[in-house]
Write a protein that binds this DNA or RNA. Structure first.
Length: 317
DNA sequence: GAACCGTGGCG
DNA sequence: TCGCCAAGGTT
């Protein structure tokens, strides 16, 4: 904790003026995403939506668009749904209880514990990849976590180390996370700069490699995930509906492309506009989204008309 | 428990 | 170049 007081990064969600909503937003964005990439999006996000009610008042597609290239865009959808739930069921304030946080969409064990601790200074066991790695090396002498998710034994061990005082516990958790992010890193740990190197079981053992067969990285190139990302990138950049023909340009394999597009629609990340165009969910004017007000003659060339209708205010009541 | 879900940087 | 990794969560 002395090391943290001296070396911690000045991150916006750690400042005294950070709100619980800001902490929650940061935790969503930081899931599997590096801090440096989150920072600019976090700033613009909170400037535009400083409270849950502001985000809930806009369509989910705007959240997906503002998410940019952070990756895993379902998080944007979940964050929007969480904002809506917070408004509807919690009076617009982010709950402080772990059980209530855990019930929010996109909030799992880690995020619930993190928000309770960092936003409300509750005493919770915060076990992210950093904490798991640091404690695994320090107390068990293991280079990297062996299991994909924290075990019961890991939780018990972490709870034993956690300070009894809630305020101290919250700081201890963020301090261990920071140590893992800056010093006790996965690839090239800087043990010479580590404040607890003298007590590290892994270092004492000569930093042995631990074979973790369970955590093989997932492939990406050529997968549906890559195709989904390419399709969504086109839709984010276009304020109006995008004709199917333009989406066909991003990936040659028709079968895989259609499967990815169908999955995006099923996930609620993409909304069909008529039969031959698509848009981010809820982002179009109602007249163009339903197509019900379109004259029969306009349907002759739907691929091109759909995009134009959104620009055309003349038929909007 | 396994599979799936984006994106970019780094060693 | 390419596998690994990054404040995970849901199905």
């Amino acid at each position: 904790m002395r090391w943290y007081a001296d070396r911690a990064r000045d991150l916006p969600w750690r400042r005294a003026d950070a709100t619980p909503w800001g902490v929650l937003v940061s935790e969503f964005m930081l899931q599997q995403t590096p801090v440096d990439r989150v920072l600019p999006v976090y700033e613009s996000w909170l400037a535009r939506w400083p409270a849950p009610a502001a985000l809930a008042a806009e369509p989910p597609g705007e959240a997906v668009r503002a998410w940019g290239r952070l990756g895993y865009p379902r998080r944007a959808l979940w964050l929007h749904a969480t904002a809506t739930t917070v408004v509807d069921r919690h009076g617009g304030r982010v709950p402080a209880d772990v059980s209530e946080l855990r019930a929010l969409p996109g909030v799992g064990e880690y995020t619930a514990a993190a928000v309770a601790a960092f936003a409300y200074r509750r005493r919770t066991v915060v076990l992210d990849t950093n904490v798991r790695r640091v404690l695994g090396r320090l107390t068990r002498g293991e280079a990297l976590p062996v299991t994909a998710s924290p075990t019961t034994a890991e939780r018990a061990a972490a709870e034993t180390l956690l300070p009894a005082e809630p305020e101290a516990a919250a700081t201890w958790s963020v301090a261990v996370m920071e140590l893992g992010a800056l010093v006790c890193t996965a690839r090239s740990p800087r043990c010479d700069a580590c404040p607890v190197a003298s007590r590290c079981r892994w270092l004492a053992a000569g930093r042995p490699a631990t074979d973790n067969a369970g955590s093989r990285a997932q492939a990406f190139a050529g997968t549906d995930r890559q195709v989904r990302g390419l399709l969504l990138a086109v839709l984010r950049a276009e304020p109006d509906a995008v004709p199917r023909a333009r989406l066909e340009e991003v990936w040659p394999d028709r079968t895989q492309r259609e499967r990815a597009l169908d999955a995006l629609v099923a996930d609620g990340l993409v909304e069909p506009v008529g039969a031959e165009a698509f848009a981010l969910p809820g982002t179009l004017a109602r007249s163009s989204r339903t197509g019900c007000r379109t004259a029969p003659s306009d349907l002759a060339d739907p691929l091109h008309r759909v995009g134009e209708i959104a620009h055309d205010d003349s038929d909007v009541p």
